[in-house]
């Protein structure tokens, strides 16, 4: 497969999630991801975008740039925002062994992203947050 890179900017609001999913899914299908992987990808997209909608901007809505790289063996998505510095990978993982009374709702989004992808990275570049996730392709 040839290397490619595409990107699109979306308004960072809940209503944009289906539009981001549509944009990414089109690329993912071309990259040969399985139906199961596409469903997992939809989940990763929602979790990444909703974090930006909820926490990135002091005055919402801001924007989110979604960038997709594909090369041999990897499908990489980047979610970039210009909001307050925030590394989601520093959020404590939920303790999944706790009882109902003890369980809290926090941290599940990034936890699901980690489990549904092969690699997750965060970097802060020129005042922007970039969350990068990679999925190995068949």
């Amino acid at each position: 497969m040839t290397e490619s890179m595409v990107e699109r900017v979306f308004v960072a609001k809940v209503e944009s999630i289906p539009l981001v999913a549509e944009f990414v899914t089109e690329q993912a299908e071309q990259a040969g991801l399985t139906a199961k992987r596409l469903m997992q990808l939809a989940l990763v997209i929602e979790e990444a975008v909703i974090n930006i909608c909820n926490y990135a901007y002091e005055v919402p809505p801001g924007e989110v740039t979604v960038r997709i790289h594909t090369d041999a063996g990897r499908f990489v998505m980047e979610f970039e925002d210009g909001g307050v510095p925030f590394d989601p990978l520093t959020v404590a993982e939920p303790d999944i062994k706790l009882s109902l009374e003890e369980r809290e709702a926090g941290g599940l989004g990034i936890f699901l992203i980690r489990r549904m992808t092969d690699e997750v990275h965060y970097r802060r570049v020129n005042g922007r947050n970039i969350l990068s996730v990679a999925i190995n392709t068949p």
Binding site: K36, Q40, R103
Partner: peptide
Amino acid sequence: GLVQEVFSIAGFDSFL
């Protein structure tokens, strides 16, 4: 499918 996978990853099947 995905629903079972998500509930299981999140550990919800251990307290429900």
